[in-house]
Design a protein around this nucleic acid. Structure first.
Length: 727
DNA sequence: ATAGGGTTAG
């Protein structure tokens, strides 16, 4: 099997043979093909090459890795000529397997040590995350060369100790050791992690001074530096000036356009770049998945496979995440099977996205199965499972799991808050938010958008104001999303002046803010102002009106009796704005006509509709008939309403309310009975007040409040007093 | 000894 290697007839061929053997041994070690390795070993012995230094070291590593103690002993006996190298090699092998104590003991017992021994030990310890021991040896290292300094600096950066890394870098310069290209790439990465623009610029100065500006790796890391600090122009400048560009440079610049939100330019670069590798594919797939285009991410994944690239861990996790967002369970299971096949299902990244996949598809049981099978869970795994339970309404499970998270982060809290929000437990969402603040966790924009939505739903001005103060305190008040959430919250809590103030102060306004403000005004009875704002939006911005804005406009017209104006807007919806009206628009138009007494017009309008209208539409007509005493039309509308009611559970409620307002109590009872028979659940009426920072809830028909008995007793007392006052 | 890509909340 090594026949191609046997034509050794010159010194040059011998060297090539040794190199090839070393490569083969490395591969056999990696793939655990010990039999192949053994065979090669035999051949090497026959050729008298088994004690050649490089070959012997690789053989030793292979036997160490497969724990063949007999062979190890045999080899160690042979190694008298280069003991030091073997010792270094043993130390390395121990460190790679995490045997820190053995490695250190071996090192301490060595009769002599060279530069490599020290550097190997220090960098190995840092790779194992044992910073203290590494620094202990670093301080005692008698050799002061670039390698050990660089090993220490890059090791610290890998352990996220960038500040210490920079301190070491300064010490290095002070002790007059010249940094090399690898030193600079590590140092630049430290600057990225520290987010210090000035520091990075000063490093760049030295890069130029020492003549490394044309080095590929150093330039690539500088591009990354400027990109991560948001200095896109500088990043682009360095990239454009680079004479030599490789896949890494192109992938970095590709990522920059995604970061800037310029998807088209990113796509153009991807299509036109001279070379791609699996990282490039991985980057574009994840970016498309993150920016909400899951379909494109999946298509790209398929293309990647077609181009014969082997997907790596990142790719798998990105594509699973994309499939989770598409709720594509079958395709996801397929990928799960692939991951199992190549033994990657235990990876935290893949595992987390698998948990997410099963939960997003409504299968929390399988999600939990994957979760439980993960041997090393990080906070993301926990968060995925918590939000998975939240998503499926299993809040008890979500809370229980949340409490078990060993090290929570703000996403953990956000997941639970969002869980309460999604299940309409607005007060609980608030409580969790308070706990979060008390625990010292930093809330972010997601936290606030959830909590502001919770206070909008509670319509609690007090709570809303409290959150607003926190938004201010954590300096998010200039953010457009926060502004929008605040405008909406104040509008829903009835403080339209505050909405107006925030809206007016926003320097840039997007579609959502305009929608929130126009809607807020319309729903709070400021119909004219709402219409004025709509007209202002049309004049001063390039934002096209959307469904919701037009609904608000119709609503406003209806409430200030501007029927013809409303009809005008309704008729322009499809023609001018290209928006197809939906059921709610129809209902608002009927409501508008009915309120102003144009009842026959309303009936004709309903007849002209493409589909049978929703129950609400008939209810709007019916209430108009009541105001204007149109008995016969009312009868027809009521009949239609009761037909429509059968289709939708909400219809019965509407019907019973209409009967109730007309005093037709027998019909009310009949409707209620019908609802019970059909098992229609009516969400109970609920009301609440806030007292001393506590919300007290009251439900119709059920006495849930702890003190309801006492309260009814007091009410009775008061009633008695009032009556005695009048008699 | 080094540069580019990854999972969760909204």
């Amino acid at each position: 099997m090594f026949s191609t290697l046997f034509s050794i007839n010159s010194r040059r061929n011998l060297k090539a043979f040794i190199r090839k053997s070393v490569n083969l041994l490395e591969n056999y070690t990696k793939q655990k093909l010990i039999n192949h390795g053994n065979a090669l070993h035999c051949h090497l012995i026959k050729m008298g090459l088994s004690s050649q230094k490089y070959v012997a070291v690789k053989l030793l590593i292979m036997y160490l890795d497969s724990r063949k103690s007999f062979e190890i002993d045999q080899m160690l006996k042979e190694f008298n000529g280069f003991n030091l190298v073997v010792q270094n090699c043993l130390i390395n092998a121990n460190l790679e397997r995490g045997n820190v104590t053995d490695a250190c003991q071996l090192f301490d017992e060595m009769p002599e040590r060279n530069e490599v021994s020290w550097t190997a030990l220090i960098s190995g310890l840092l790779k194992q995350g044992n910073v203290d021991k590494a620094m202990f040896y670093f301080e005692r290292n008698p050799f002061s060369n670039v390698f050990s300094w660089t090993a220490a600096i890059s090791g610290l950066v890998q352990n996220k100790l960038s500040f210490q890394a920079m301190r070491l870098y300064k010490d290095m310069l002070r002790s007059r050791v010249l940094p090399n290209d690898i030193t600079f790439t590590s140092v630049v990465r430290a600057c990225v992690d520290l987010g210090d623009l000035g520091l990075g610029r000063s490093v760049l100065g030295l890069v130029v001074k020492f003549g490394f500006e044309d080095n590929l790796c150093v330039s690539n890391s500088m591009v990354t530096f400027f990109l991560r600090l948001g200095e896109y122009d500088s990043a682009k400048k360095i990239f454009d000036r680079m004479e030599e560009k490789d896949v890494v440079s192109w992938t970095t610049i590709l990522d920059m356009y995604f970061e800037m939100g310029d998807l088209r330019e990113a796509r153009r670069i991807f299509d036109e770049m001279p070379e791609r590798n699996e990282v490039t594919w991985s980057a574009i797939i994840s970016r498309f998945s993150q920016s909400g285009d899951a379909e494109e991410a999946v298509i790209l994944f398929r293309q990647m496979i077609q181009h014969q690239f082997k997907p790596n861990v990142s790719c798998y996790s990105s594509v699973i995440s994309a499939l989770a967002n598409l709720e594509a369970l079958e395709a996801g299971k397929n990928i799960h099977a692939h991951a199992l096949k190549i033994g990657m299902e235990m990876n935290v990244f893949i595992g987390s996205s698998l948990v997410d996949l099963y939960c997003k598809c409504g299968n929390t049981k399988d999600g939990r199965l994957v979760f439980d099978s993960l041997p090393e869970k990080n906070v993301v795994c926990w968060n995925s499972m918590v939000s998975g339970y939240s998503l499926n309404g299993q809040l008890a499970e979500a809370i229980e799991l949340f409490n078990q998270i060993p090290q929570k982060n703000n996403v953990s809290w956000n997941s639970l808050i969002a869980g309460h929000l999604g299940n309409k437990n607005f007060a609980e969402a608030f409580e969790v938010f308070n706990e979060m603040i008390l625990s010292g966790e930093q809330p972010n924009k997601s936290t606030f958008s959830s909590v502001l939505s919770a206070s909008a739903n509670l319509a609690s001005l007090e709570k809303g104001k409290y959150v607003h103060a926190k938004v201010f305190k954590f300096r998010f008040h200039h953010d457009i999303f926060m502004g929008t959430a605040l405008v909406d919250m104040y509008a829903k809590s009835g403080s339209i002046e505050s909405s107006r103030k925030i809206f007016n102060r926003m320097p840039t306004k997007n579609e959502v803010v305009w929608t929130a403000m126009i809607q807020g005004l319309a729903e709070n009875g400021f119909a004219e102002e709402s219409l004025r704002l709509f007209e202002q939006m049309e004049l001063t911005s390039s934002i096209p009106p959307n469904e919701l804005i037009l609904l608000s406009v119709l609503f406003a017209c209806s409430h200030c009796g501007l029927v013809d104006k409303g009809l005008h807007y309704f008729n322009s919806m499809e023609k001018v704005y290209g928006i197809k009206p939906n059921e709610r628009h129809y209902t608002t138009v009927v409501d508008m006509l009915a309120r102003s007494g144009r009842l026959s017009e309303a009936e004709k309008f309903i007849e002209s509709l493409p589909n049978e209208p929703e129950a609400n539409t008939w209810a709007a007509l019916l209430s108009g008939c009541k105001i204007y005493g149109e008995e016969r039309l009312a009868e027809r509308a009521a009949e239609k309403l009761s037909v429509a009611a059968e289709k939708k559970p909400g219809g019965y409620v509407l019907l019973s309310n209409i009967y109730a307002s007309g005093g037709r109590w027998i019909d009310v009872m009949n409707t209620r009975n019908l609802m019970n028979q059909k098992g229609v659940k009516k969400s109970g009426g609920c009301s609440w007040i806030e007292m001393r920072n506590q919300v007290h809830m009251f439900y119709s028909q059920v006495e849930i409040h702890t003190f309801s008995k006492d309260m009814y007793w007091v009410l009775q007392l008061l009633n008695g007093e009032i009556q005695s006052y009048f008699t």
